[in-house]
Simulated assay, not measured.
Amino acid sequence: MTDQYTPPEVWTWDKENGGTFGAVNRPTAGARTERELPTGDHPFQLYSQGTPNGQKVTIMFEELLAAGMQAEYDAWPIRIMEGDQFSSGFVAINPNSKIPALVDRSGAEPIRIFESGAILMHLAEKFGMLLPSETKSRAETLSWLFWQMGSAPYLGGGFGHFYAYAPVKIEYAIDRFAMEAKRQLDVLNRNLATREYLTGDEYSIADIATWPWYGALVMGKAYDAGTFLQVEEYEHVRRWARMIGERKAVRRGRLVKDVSDRVGGIAERHDAADLDALDI
């Protein structure tokens, strides 16, 4: 840390901050372009991208379909690096301009749901799956679901940003968030030392929410940081991550809206056959 920064009395935004997301970040909300969103034929219209938060919802849909539920969905790509999330159509569904966002048209009138945890809860309650109804088990599941929602920003926006995406490497920031990332992994590792899944013996939306973030991290598939964080230390998280990753619905869900072609995915999904063709 060679340069000392003194904050001004009043912060003003007069330049792009640089880094991977510098071209799209702004200190204001709202639509920047006028553009309607496409709409398909299915009851559920999902607008997202294959990031960890996006994978949660496609995995959930694929789990529902695998269980025989009437949960067919259209998945449309929102290319966040190109600013699709700031179109008027998307902002109407999610005023926070973050993916994923869902429109549920299965009832008398369309319902918008944004924030990945809210979408998982909505679908779990609608179909009576992956969220226990018994009070104690439900409380445990929701506790871990909200643990993920509160913790992952420190992993992604904190550690991931400063370690992999920031325009300069800042020792203090990387150290601060590496410490927190490892603390979170230790929380998971201690919990999974005595449990098959996060909440006990049953797979749930807590596992679906947590796996795309922490499963990828301990398997060395996030930020190229496996060695740096010594992820092999977290043996119970790695066992859990491998087990979740072997589920067919998880393999299918993570391929939807992968516009980067990192894992040979598809940009849009409108029918089960779109994924069947990948021979998963």
Rank of each mutant, 00 (worst) to 15 (best):
L123E: 09
P95Y: 04
Y214A: 06
Y223N: 04
A101T: 07
N25S: 00
L255M: 14
D104Y: 06
A277Y: 09
H161M: 01
D276C: 01
L120Y: 08
D279L: 11
I208E: 00
L37N: 13
R195L: 01
R262H: 10
V256R: 04
G30Y: 13
V103F: 00
G160D: 07
E16P: 07
G156T: 14
W213V: 07
W147S: 04
R239F: 06
R32D: 09
A66Y: 04
G226H: 08
K257C: 12
S260K: 12
A152W: 05
D276S: 11
P27L: 01
M81Q: 05
L192Y: 04
A273W: 01
V250W: 02
T20Y: 09
K15S: 03
A272P: 09
R247I: 08
E115D: 05
P52E: 00
L155W: 11
Y5F: 15
L64C: 03
Y214R: 04
G200K: 03
G19S: 04
E125N: 15
T135N: 15
Q230R: 14
M243D: 14
V57N: 05
V187Q: 05
P167K: 07
Y197H: 08
M81L: 14
A101S: 10
P43R: 03
L192F: 08
A118Y: 07
S116N: 02
A241G: 12
R269H: 12
I113A: 08
M243W: 03
A164E: 09
G128E: 08
F159N: 10
V187R: 04
W213M: 02
R239K: 12
R190E: 11
G265W: 02
W211N: 05
P167Q: 09
T28H: 10
G19L: 07
N17D: 02
S151T: 15
A241S: 11
I111C: 05
I174R: 13
V250L: 06
N189L: 00
R138L: 11
E202Y: 00
W144R: 13
G68N: 12
G68Q: 07
V10G: 03
F127T: 12
D14T: 15
V10K: 15
R269A: 11
E16G: 14
S143N: 13
Y197C: 11
K182G: 01
F44I: 05
E140M: 14
E9H: 14
N53F: 03
Q55D: 00
D207K: 01
G22E: 04
L198M: 10
G50I: 00
E9V: 09
F159A: 05
F127L: 14
L192K: 09
I280K: 05
A31L: 01
E235Y: 00
R105V: 02
I244M: 12
D261H: 07
G157E: 13
W13V: 13
D271S: 10
K257P: 02
S137A: 15
E109F: 13
K182Y: 02
P95C: 05
R238Q: 11
A124Q: 06
P167G: 03
I174H: 06
M121S: 03
K56W: 02
V103W: 06
L188Q: 11
I174C: 11
L37C: 12
V168C: 02
F21P: 03
L102N: 02
L255S: 10
A124N: 06
G226A: 09
I266E: 08
H42E: 12
